[in-house]
Simulated assay, not measured.
Amino acid sequence: MQAFGLYTHIRANRIRSGFLIVGLFLLVYVMVFAGALLAEALTGDAPLDVLLRMALNDLIAAAPWATAGALVWLFIAYHFNRALIAATVGAHPVTRQQEPKLYTLLENLCIARGLAMPRLYIVESPVLNAFATGLNDKQYSVTVTRGLLEALDDAEMEAVLAHELTHIRNGDVRLMVIAGVVAGIVSFVGEFVFRGLTRMSFGAPRRRYSTEGRRGGSGGGAFAAVLIALALVAVAWLLSQVIRFALSRSREYLADAGAVELTKNPDAMIAALLKIDGRGELPSAPSSVMEMCIDNPRSGFTDLFATHPSIAARVDRLVQYAGGRLPAPTPAPTTPQGPWDPPSDAGQPGPWGPHPASS
């Protein structure tokens, strides 16, 4: 679904979040069915339709357990997503007393926007980046790196904080967290299936079933069943990983625009993006966290698979549509001449002969 404008973007995010939750259970059931089909094919031989029917019976029997496991995963993600992400990147919470200037900047922006004050975290890293996370007003948090604090001035830091608050307001943060949960649980189930297969005894005598599913009779469908099961596992895993590619990259343009609307300072947003460009790689952060950041250097094979527009494209939008201006280039430093330095025209001919060099 394409999103045109702010309110359609927010509504589209809510719809996508619901679809992702439904898709989570569907992908889990596909993975369980694929695992059951592999188990039936590797422990017994029968026509393909018999193996498929037996795997479907296994799925029906295992569906309550698979549903319970997915619900437990969602429960853990819902209540502990902020703590888990903070532990992954090494972030720690800070208070007004510890970071008074940063805390005040964020608080003033929340008051102006009418948002609840999120928790503030800092990652002790020299890289330049920031992100927001959470699923509701009680969980939202904004995380910045120490390098960002040291590199940006107050106006630029205010613009970055406003960018992250706009992601919270627009529902981008909730959607990205849910997408990460979907990818995580499907990857876990897929790994569980493959680990179970590696522990199976492939040298054990294989059972043979008739077309009615009884022992004896001709088989021949095991190889096709294995191929189908492996294809299902691969497709489910790939879908869980590429879900983020379906998430609109317009969210970054809208967050930049929201920051300008809130701060009334497009130049600060441009300056902050230019400083962050190419300096935002968090080595300890998984891809699901980097996709939440203000800049994600992990663009994939081509720009088609990038989760963020390029910094140059975002700056260009701010210049064209928000009245922003590119910062003036810094002049090259010049070396002043001292009284002991020879003049620049030393040794050059003049009307009364060459200029003398300083001794």
Score class of each variant (00 low, 15 high):
Glu281Leu: 15
Asp316His: 10
Pro118Gly: 03
Lys101Ile: 09
Val173Cys: 00
Ala236Trp: 06
Ala231Val: 15
Gly190Tyr: 04
Pro356Val: 14
Ala183Glu: 12
Gly347Asp: 10
Gly338Arg: 10
Leu27Arg: 03
Gly278Asn: 12
Ser210Gln: 03
Thr263Met: 01
Leu165Lys: 00
Asp153Asn: 12
Gly18Arg: 13
Ala77Pro: 03
Val235Asn: 11
Gly338Val: 07
Leu24Thr: 04
Leu304Cys: 04
Ile228Tyr: 11
Phe19Gly: 07
Pro126His: 01
Val186Asn: 00
Phe223Gly: 15
Ala91Trp: 00
Ala246Ser: 04
Ser17Asp: 06
Ala268Ile: 09
Ile85Gln: 08
Ala312Thr: 06
Met157Leu: 14
Gly18Cys: 00
Glu158Arg: 11
Ala12Ile: 11
Asn129Cys: 00
Arg119Ile: 07
Leu165Met: 11
Leu52Asn: 12
His163Thr: 01
Val144Gly: 02
Val189Phe: 15
Ser218Leu: 10
Glu252Ala: 03
Ile60Tyr: 12
Arg251Ala: 00
Ala162Tyr: 07
Phe80His: 06
Val72Gly: 05
Ser218Glu: 08
Phe80Gly: 04
Thr43Ser: 15
Asp45Glu: 14
Leu74Gly: 09
Pro64Asp: 00
Pro64Leu: 02
Leu102Ser: 10
Arg314Gln: 05
Tyr7Lys: 08
Glu156Val: 08
Arg169Gly: 05
His308Val: 08
Gly171Pro: 02
Asp154Tyr: 09
Thr330Gly: 02
Pro342Gln: 14
Arg169Thr: 03
Arg96Ala: 12
Glu191Pro: 00
Gly203Leu: 13
Ala257Gln: 15
Pro126Leu: 05
Arg317Asn: 06
Glu40Thr: 02
Ser284Glu: 15
Tyr29Thr: 15
Pro205Trp: 07
Ile168Met: 08
His163Tyr: 00
Phe194Ala: 02
Gly323Gln: 12
Arg244Tyr: 12
Phe75Lys: 03
Met31Arg: 11
Arg174Thr: 13
Leu37Arg: 00
Leu105Glu: 01
Gln348Phe: 04
Ala332Ser: 08
Val142Gln: 05
Ala112Lys: 11
Leu175Val: 08
Ala236Gln: 07
Ala204Asp: 15
Gln348Glu: 11
Ala328Asn: 10
Ser141Ala: 14
Met157Ala: 01
Arg11Asp: 06
Arg96Trp: 02
Ala229Val: 11
Ala41Met: 07
Ile276Glu: 02
Ala328Phe: 02
Gly134Leu: 05
Glu99Gly: 05
Leu52Pro: 06
Met117Lys: 05
Val72Leu: 13
Val144Arg: 00
Val182Trp: 00
Ala112Asp: 05
Ala61Val: 13
Glu164Trp: 01
Leu115Tyr: 03
Asn108Gln: 14
His9Asn: 08
Leu48Tyr: 14
Arg174Glu: 05
Glu261Asp: 05
Pro126Asn: 06
Glu150Gln: 14
Tyr78Gln: 14
Arg215Tyr: 09
Asn108Glu: 13
Leu326His: 02
Gln241Asp: 07
Glu99Trp: 06
Pro283Phe: 03
Ala225Leu: 08
Phe4Ser: 15
Leu149Gly: 00
Ser187Ala: 04
Pro205His: 12
Ser344Pro: 13
Arg195Ala: 08
Arg314Ser: 13
Thr211Ser: 13
Arg82Asn: 08
Ala231Thr: 15
Asn13Asp: 01
Glu124Met: 06
Leu238Trp: 14
Tyr29Leu: 15
Asn108Gly: 08
Ala313Tyr: 03
